[in-house]
């Protein structure tokens, strides 16, 4: 599935210009991270990708077809958006009903819905919580409930808006498993996050936004080497990368292993 964005602009009714001409295209299944300062337009942008918001100007083409050709309900079959605040998304009495809702709307047969519930509840870690009321879940379980309910619809593209908020070590690991699963199953995952440790562990395609525009995009090597542009978007590289940069190590480090390797080489390089 290919999403093309051409000169996308969005003005809110209050007059604020949230997006000021975005040009890019997403394709394939290599996960993409969108990073950048608060109010940069990340969520506004993501909500355009399945028609939750409509362009004030410009175009969005999905597999060549204009987004205007269909309703948001239609596009949601292919492109699922997981809300930033789970309380804005959950509305049924049990986790199971939340999970069933999407595929039921799509007319997925009962037995397949049940199979999907087995698989998805395991993946998002809510197998033991299926009969719980979503409002009795803790904050991160709620987030996984919203992710699960979108996974249940099995879209080709899935957008996660700030999934890392409040996650502990285990939650972050679970998110990694979900992102890996999507990639291995030829699904594109686009994730908005402020957690740079999480970004460098899971993504090699990064889009940096600031003030309603894309400031730069590319591999993590490219993006995190350009600290000056990053700073314009209120982003700093993750801890290990920063130490490597401060020491002037030649190669950029993202993981502990990389750092140790690069540092040791520098020690012996004389």
């Amino acid at each position: 599935m290919k999403i093309e964005i051409k000169n996308l602009k969005h003005k809110y009714p209050s007059g604020g210009e949230a997006l000021r001409g975005i040009n890019t295209a997403f394709e394939g299944s290599d996960p993409i991270a969108i990073i950048g300062q608060n109010g940069a337009g990340k969520t506004t942008f993501a909500k355009h990708l399945n028609g939750l918001l409509r362009p004030t100007e410009g175009q969005i083409l999905i597999d060549g077809e204009s987004i205007h050709e269909h309703t948001t309900a239609y596009w949601s079959k292919y492109i699922g958006y997981v809300f930033q605040n789970p309380d804005n998304q959950l509305f049924l009495e049990t986790v199971r009903k939340e999970f069933e809702f999407g595929p039921k709307q799509l007319g997925v047969p009962r037995h397949e819905i049940n199979d999907r519930i087995d698989f998805v509840s395991e993946l998002v870690g809510l197998k033991h919580r299926l009969s719980t009321h979503p409002f009795d879940l803790n904050a991160t379980e709620k987030k996984f409930c919203t992710i699960g309910s979108i996974l249940m619809m099995d879209p080709k593209v899935i957008i996660l808006d700030e999934p890392t908020c409040g996650q502990d070590v285990e939650g972050n690991q679970r998110l990694t498993e979900i992102i890996t699963y999507l990639k291995n199953n030829d699904r594109l995952c686009i994730t908005i996050t402020h957690d740079m440790k999480f970004v460098v562990r899971n993504f090699d395609q990064i889009v940096v936004m600031a003030k309603g525009q894309i400031l730069m995009s590319g591999s993590k090597n490219l993006v995190f080497s350009d600290t000056k542009t990053l700073l314009e978007s209120y982003v700093t590289p993750p801890p290990i990368t920063r130490v490597g940069q401060a020491l002037g190590l030649k190669d950029i480090s993202f993981s502990k292993e990389e750092f140790i390797d690069h540092f040791t080489r520098r020690l012996h390089q004389r």
């Binding site: 940069a40 700030e162 908020c165 402020h194 700073l231 209120y234």
Partner: peptide
């Protein structure tokens, strides 16, 4: 209680 989860890295700092 986790008071900067929604903030960008510089804002958080």
């Amino acid at each position: 209680d986790e008071c900067t989860t929604q903030l960008d890295p510089i804002g958080s700092e």
